[in-house]
Structures are given as C-alpha cells and as structure tokens.
Design a protein around this nucleic acid. Structure first.
Length: 119
DNA sequence: CCGATGACATTTG
DNA sequence: TCAAATGCCATCG
C-alpha cells in the first residue's frame, strides 16, 4: 500500500483511537446517493461536539481509501473548500456519478439527499 | 508545555 | 438573508 509522504497525520501515533475508526465506520455506512454532514457523522460516532476532528480524520485518509468520504459535507451543503483543498474537484465529479446534483464549485443540495440513519 | 491552526457548527449583528 | 464572531477539541510546531 502506498506510503503517504510526510504530512499524513493518520500515522501520527496511529493508536486504537476509536474516534477515527468510528468516524470512518459511519462514513462507510453512508449509502450511495446520500449525503451526511460532519456534525451528522460526528454525532453518530458519539461525539456531537466534534465536527472539526471528523474533518481532520478525513484529511488524513489515504488516497486509496474505500470510504465514500466525498459524501460527507458541511451543513452549508458543499464539498470541502469548493476546490481550495487538494482534490475536492475530483471528488465532486464522483458525487455527480453517484447521482447527486453538484456544481463545479462543489455546491450541492444537502437537504435533498440528507442521509438519515435509522435505528 | 504552550501557542497557533483547522475538509466545522452555531449564534449574534 | 448574509457576514462575522465565538466555541469545541485534537493535532502540529
């Protein structure tokens, strides 16, 4: 597996941090064509007050990750940074492939595709 | 150890 | 309605 260049925080200790693992688990459960906000995922992970750390976890995701992290957006309803970030543009294109309406800026209709977990 | 930063959220002006 | 300020917690330098 690729060894991410220095700067990848995921291996910065890489302890059994359930937070990271849990968050990734939640993201992995997001069905195709659905969207979830950071606060949503954080809350499902058991930490309703830690949306930022969720972003940090996703920021350390390896390039070959299978997690549909691109389905995780903020409450505003747009993909991270609208392209300011390293690879948002490519992920935006993937969202379109999922059947989600996304414009070039990464803006999308979160409420229209809001993923709601059921007990 | 302490200060600054951050793929955010929420509240106030 | 939009823009700005504040809060929360973890990681980085």
């Amino acid at each position: 597996m690729p060894r991410p260049k220095s700067g990848n925080r995921i291996e910065a200790g890489e302890p059994p941090v359930d937070f990271r693992a849990t968050v990734l688990g939640i993201v992995a459960k997001i069905p195709k064509g659905k969207l979830a906000s950071y606060g949503q995922v954080a809350a499902l992970a058991g930490f309703p007050q830690r949306p930022r750390q969720v972003g940090m976890v996703l920021s350390g995701l390896p390039e070959g990750t299978k997690l549909p992290w691109h389905r995780v957006v903020n409450t505003r309803g747009y993909v991270p940074s609208r392209g300011r970030w390293w690879g948002a543009f490519e992920q935006i294109g993937r969202l379109r492939d999922e059947g989600i309406e996304v414009d070039d800026l990464g803006n999308l209709d979160l409420e229209a595709h809001r993923w709601t977990p059921r007990s």
